[in-house]
């Protein structure tokens, strides 16, 4: 494997270069072990197709999404204005992110605070790369004939109407794409949104990811594709608890594995 090229904006600026796109890594993508693997895999894809990108590195900060959903508007706006200053300082035009929460906030909530960028989720960029022929999926491989299902992240699906891009990516595999009984607009939340990720669930009969685990198991899928780091945690935990053998993989991981990048 060749050395990955992941420059920061500051490093590029020193070389008087501008990237095509900024990769917004997000907090989970930067710190969570499972999500870090997805971050690296996505970078491998970007390198492989030759997209000039950069990250903010240590200049990146939480978008403020969990703060805003928890009701802490003050903290949200502090984070938003700080990030917008950074992004505008680098004259950022286009952003890609692997996190639907970052995606939603950057795309929908930063404009009225002065941050106007073209923001895409990595599922959209991957679909674009496939459509334009820049990213070709190899035939056969580990996913051949396997049942794969896609779990819609609320912040990608209902919040932003992105249902087809991730599925279009999965359709490139020689796999058997199945749907869970609740999917797309009717997709069931993993339980992490609205800042629930950072607290215990309220009293109830079961946890939300336990309910979603039943959906995953009933689908008969051997691979559950996800496109959100929080869903990733919730779904993996749910399956682990049931000692179910199905694997949860991000779209980027699936592509890297299929193309052996």
């Amino acid at each position: 494997m060749t050395e990955l090229n992941i420059p920061t904006m500051a490093e590029l600026l020193a070389k008087e270069k501008e990237p095509e796109i900024l990769f917004w890594v997000g907090c989970a993508g930067s710190f969570d072990d499972r999500a870090k693997k997805i971050t690296k895999d996505f970078c491998k894809i970007l390198n492989a197709v030759g997209i000039e990108f950069a990250i903010l590195g240590q200049e990146e900060a939480c978008t403020g999404d969990p703060a805003r959903r928890a009701g802490n508007e003050f903290l949200f706006q502090m984070m938003a204005l700080q990030n917008i200053t950074t992004l505008n300082g680098y004259n950022i035009k286009k952003i890609v992110t692997t996190c639907p929460h970052c995606f939603n906030t950057l795309k929908n909530e930063y404009p009225e605070l002065g941050g106007n960028y073209e923001v895409v989720h990595h599922s959209q960029l991957l679909q674009e790369l496939i459509d334009s022929g820049k990213l070709k999926m190899q035939g056969g491989g580990t996913f051949k004939g396997k049942k794969i299902t896609f779990h819609d992240s609320c912040y990608l699906g209902r919040a932003n109407g992105i249902y087809e891009a991730p599925r279009a990516v999965l359709q490139q595999l020689d796999a058997d794409l199945v749907e869970m009984k609740r999917c797309k607009t009717k997709g069931l939340c993993c339980g992490a949104g609205g800042a629930q990720m950072f607290k215990e669930e309220e009293k109830g009969e079961q946890r939300i990811n336990q309910l979603r685990t039943i959906d995953m198991m009933e689908s008969g899928a051997e691979v559950v594709a996800a496109a959100c780091p929080f869903c990733m945690t919730m779904l993996s935990d749910g399956l682990k608890e049931k000692e179910h053998q199905a694997e949860v993989l991000d779209l980027a991981e699936i592509i890297v594995s299929q193309n052996q990048l």
Partner: peptide
């Protein structure tokens, strides 16, 4: 979580220096 975001720029207690 709020304190972490304010102080560490992330909802978890990690150093912002370790972000990359």
């Amino acid at each position: 979580m709020f304190n972490n975001i304010e102080n560490n720029q992330a909802p978890w207690q990690f150093s912002p220096m370790d972000r990359d």
